[in-house]
Design a protein around this nucleic acid. Structure first.
Lengths: 110, 110
DNA sequence: AGTATCTATCGTAATATTGCAATAAATAAT
DNA sequence: ATTATTTATTGCAATATTACGATAGATACT
């Protein structure tokens, strides 16, 4: 009990859900928005920008990285994170397609 | 500890995260897709369609209803669920806007 | 070498989510 | 009235998420 039964669903359903989960936290939305605005960012910047502890920010960055939405390059003691364009656009397309199925089927003409 | 610190984030960030969470489960994606495909559905249909227990489906329907994405009308002993067009389009717009901020800032020309 | 700075990881506590059996509530059918 | 059918709710167990202090690891600076 308590564990999602992924085997019951299609690969697409699981993928949409998993990516939605990756952005299903305001801190991760804030991180992504900051990444987009500043074109990059480091863990330390985010700790100041957002009010969460360093360990917590690091954990959220890890989740975004594991989802493939961001990537980090080491710069001395720092790590410079940025959006992964391929995955970002993949997510965008996946969501657009998902929303489109409704527009196609149940649009204003229906 | 263990509770999301919503007060640290903007209303928009919290709203995007909350709606993402509503669709962050493959069963709820499957429910929404079935709702779109059949233009409506009842709890019992979904129990057969998806392999989860009736109580579990009912719980997922409740979460989607609480997020405002679906609405149910009572039909005898059954409840007929359907997509809430306003909220659905609101979610669509919110996500489109979110994804667009990246395209604007970091598109192919950047 | 020793110190400072920055990020990742570990361990832990609090809370949330997932799933289901059992049961309740409400209408339909006999 | 009784029984069947359908959905919602309750209670519980298992697992996942969120948050943070403490600590480890790695590079920069003196």
């Amino acid at each position: 009990m308590g564990v999602t039964q992924t085997h019951l669903f299609t690969e697409e359903q699981n993928e949409i859900a998993q990516l939605a989960k990756a952005i299903a936290h305001p801190a991760r939305i804030a991180i992504l928005q900051h990444l987009i605005k500043t074109k990059s960012c480091i863990n330390g910047d985010l700790v100041l920008e957002i009010g969460l502890a360093q360990a917590t920010i690091s954990q959220h960055l890890r989740e975004l990285k594991e989802a493939g939405l961001i990537q980090g390059t080491i710069e001395g003691t720092r790590v410079n994170y940025c959006i992964n364009p391929e995955k970002w656009n993949g997510l965008k397309s996946l969501f657009e397609e998902f929303f489109q199925t409704y527009a196609d089927c149940c649009g204003p003409a229906c």
